[in-house]
Design a protein around this nucleic acid. Structure first.
Length: 237
DNA sequence: AATGTTTACAACCGCAGTTCG
DNA sequence: GCGAACTGCGGTTGTAAACAT
């Protein structure tokens, strides 16, 4: 048997996305929402596979992404979270609004790992044992099901809009200076209390919930449209 | 200025989990 | 209950910019 490949790679473009491709994808999603990633490239007129489109949108084009250098506070929190969660980047990313799991993973591998190595072999108690990460959900009280329950008890605003950072999307030429500027308004991250930990898990669950809805409903994208309207982002394209 | 090396991050790959008919 | 389709995740690779020689 075997799985069918996610897409027929013949004739599909690969590698770096062009500005035109970004525009097509962004415009399509803003106008139509996301019904099914597999159909997005065809409908948007892109020679990409759906998986590639999804990745581009999630990691780069989403308007709520925060881009720019990690602050020291963020790095500290990342080290702390990694010591608790291990390489579960999507879980870790849930604690960093506007950061993607890919971005966090990259930053860890290129920067923080190196710093920790310089500090010595065991600055944070070493690499977290896999078991520790695996048991995380149980320790936190039962994994996603429980998280959803917490969500129901303590709902989080569907879109925690960060208007002061929304300008960053699709900014291929983001200068270092502007990246640093964008950091100026970013909140610092205090050490996590268990309450904050739970709160972030709930938030993560909400986002997941909302995104899952998008295969049948595209309502969530309305928030992004409003977002763009406020920022006039599309005029920057 | 030209070339080689390093760094940062975008993008791809393959697998696992989930959904759906 | 089963298998195919689809999505999401983490590991890895590719590549362009920055830096060193």
């Amino acid at each position: 048997m075997g799985r069918r490949p996610c897409c027929d790679k013949v004739g599909l473009k690969r590698g770096t996305w062009s500005v035109e491709e970004d525009q097509k994808l962004t415009n399509f999603i803003l106008c139509n929402g996301i019904k099914c990633w597999r159909h997005v490239p065809k409908l948007a007129g892109l020679l990409r596979c759906g998986k590639s489109c999804r990745l581009r949108w999630m990691n780069y084009l989403r308007p709520d992404l925060k881009r720019g250098a990690f602050s020291e506070a963020e790095e500290d929190q990342l080290v702390e979270l990694h010591s608790r969660l291990g390489n579960r980047w999507s879980k870790i990313a849930a604690f960093f609004p506007g950061r993607t799991d890919n971005e966090i993973k990259n930053h860890w591998n290129t920067s923080i790992k190196k710093k920790l190595n310089l500090l010595g072999p065991d600055p944070q108690g070493g690499e977290p044992p896999i078991e520790q990460g695996e048991n995380r959900d149980a320790e936190e009280g039962g994994g996603d099901i429980d998280v959803d329950q917490k969500l129901a008890e303590n709902p989080v605003s569907k879109v925690e809009t960060r208007l002061d950072h929304g300008h960053s999307c699709s900014d291929h030429n983001t200068s270092k200076a502007s990246r640093e500027d964008s950091d100026a308004g970013w909140s610092t991250f205090p050490s996590l209390t268990d309450l904050q930990f739970d709160s972030c898990l709930s938030r993560s669950s909400m986002e997941k919930h909302v995104l899952q809805e998008d295969c049948s409903e595209s309502y969530w994208i309305d928030d992004y449209v409003g977002f763009f309207a406020l920022l006039g982002w599309h005029q920057l394209q």
